[in-house]
Design a binder for these strands. Sequence first.
DNA 1: GCTATGGATAGCCTAGCATCCCAATGCTA
Length: 574
Amino acid sequence: MVNQEIAQIFYDIAQFLEMEAVAFKPYAYEKAGLALETLAEDVKEIYKKEGFEGLKKIPGVGENIAGKIEEYLKTGKIKYYEGYKKKYPVNIQELTAVEGVGPKMVRDLWKYLKIKNLFDLEKASRAGKIRDLPHFGEKTEKNILQGVAFLKREKGRFLLGDILPTVREIIENLKSLKEIKQISEAGSVRRRKETIGDVDILVAASKPSKVINYFISLPGIVKIWGNGPTKASIRLETGFDVDLRVVPEKSYGSALQYFTGSKEHNIVLRQIAINKGLKLNEYGLFRGKKMIAGKTEEEIYKKLGMSVMEPELRENTGEIETAIKGRLPKIIGYKDIKGDLHCHSNWDGGANSIEEIAQAAIKMGYEYIGISDHTKFLRIEHGLNEKQLVRQRKEIEKLNEKFKVQSSKFKVLHGCEANIMPDGSIDIKDEVLEKLDYVIAGIHSQFKMSKGQMTKRIITAVKNSNVDIISHPTGRIIQRRDEYQIDFDEILKAAKETNTILEINSFPGRLDLKDIYIKKAKEAGVKMVINTDSHHIDHLRFIEYGIAQARRGWAEKEDIVNSWQVEELLKLFS
DNA sequence: GCTATGGATAGCCTAGCATCCCAATGCTA
C-alpha cells in the first residue's frame, strides 16, 4: 500500500531532521508517518475522493505534510526528501537500527568516514577506525560491532509466540526471590503485539540491588548491556533482549502503566495530566510535589478521568477517548473460547488422530472441537477427496457416540478446509460439503493475483452457500510474505450479506486477520472465529495469540462465534 | 511542522544510563 511507502519516507525525513538537530519537526514527521501506517484507508483513495482537504483530515497531517503526500501521489517523489538523500546519501533506517546508533552518530560517521550503510559501518568498526572520532571511543566501537552482528543475524524483532513462553519462565524464576513483592511483563509483550523488539519486566521490590544481581546471573545470558541500581538489560542466548526495571511498591502502578505503553498512548495520557494541572511519570501522578496516585494502574486512570483499560487496547487508536466517555468495550477474555474449529488430523498428514485431538481439547476445557482437514487440491498436504470425507464423517460420528455413552457433552464437529480455486470455486462437490457441520475455505495457491481478481476470487467463495468460514483471509505471513492484494471493504460487505465468518488464525507467524482488520470487521458487523490451524495437539495452545489479536482488535464475545454454545454455533452454520 | 487558540503565536512527554571526558550528549525506552 502507498501508505506504507510514504510513512517510510516520513520516518526517514524525521531521522534526517534529527541529524541536523532540528527541533520538533522530527516528531511531527514521525507522527504523520505513524498515522499513515495505521490508517485503514488507502491515501490514494482519500485523495481521489476528498482531495487535498481530505489529506489534511488525517491526524498529524497539516498544510505542509499534506503537500508532500500530494506531491508523492502525483510524481512518485518528494523533493524535500530527495534533497536530504542527496545531502546525506546514507541508509539511515538501516544504520539507526543498530543498537546504540542514532541520527547524530550517523551524521558524524558520514562526515568523518563516509559511512553509508551497514556494510561500511561493519568494515570501519572492524578496522578500528571509529574509536578515534571525537565523542566516540573503544567501547562505542565495540558496541557498534556487536549491534551490527545482531542485526545481520536477526531482523531485530521476534514473534510473540516465540517469546512469551521464555518471558513466563523468567518471571517464574524471579518470583522465587522473597524481596519481590510484585512482578509483571510490561511493554509490547504485555500489550501482546504480534512481534516484539525487546522484553520489559517490571518488579516492585524492597532490595533492588539484590533483584538486579539475581537477574543478571540468570542462566542463558550471553551479554549484559548495562546494570545500574534500578535497571538492567541483558541478551539471552535465544537472541532477544530483556530489560528489568525495579521500582518501589508505591510506584508500581505508575511504572507498570508507563512501561506498558504504548509510547503514543502514554503521550496522550501525559497531556491529559498536564491539562488537569498534574504530572505523570513512572513514579506516580503528582500535583505539585504531592503524589496523588501511583500504587495501581486503576487509580491513575481513575484520577485522569477514565477507567483502566486492558493493555491490548493501549495503542492510542481511540481507546482513551472511548474510556473517557465510559464506553470501553468488554473485550473477549482468554478463557472465553469454547472450541477450536480449525484442526488438522492425521487424515491429512497432521500429527494426531481425531480422538487424540478431542482428548487434548477436553483437557483444555473446550466443549467442542472442529476437525477441518485439507481437501484434495492440496495433494502435498494429503488433502482429502469426497470419498475420504464421507469415511471421516463416520469415524467422527462413532467418536461422538462414545462421548454420549460416557455421558460427556463434548462434541466433535466435522468440517474441512477446502481450497478456493483461482476462479473462486471450491475443490469439493456441493453435495459432500452440504453434509459437513461446517466448511472452511482458504487460499493455498496463486497468491499473486491482481487486486481486482483476488477480491473477486474471495467474494465468489464467500457467496458460496456451503462456505461458512474463510481461513487466514489476507494470507500474510509475518516477516515473510505480504498479504494478498485485496479490497478488504468489499470482502466485508459480501461477508456481512452472506453471514460468512472470517477467521482469526492464531498461528504465531500468521495472526491473520490482524488487529486493524478485526476492528473493521467488528464495525461492519461481520462475525469472526479464533482458530489455531493446529497440525499437532501442541499447537492448540496457540489459541491465546489469536485471542490476543482479537482483543487488540477490540472484539467482544458476541463477535467471536467460538465463544458461543455449540447449539448457537450449529444454528449459525445451518 | 502540527495543533490549539484566536487570527499570529506558544507549546510540543520524561528519565536513566553509558560514554566520553571529567560536564555534556546521545540513545533508549
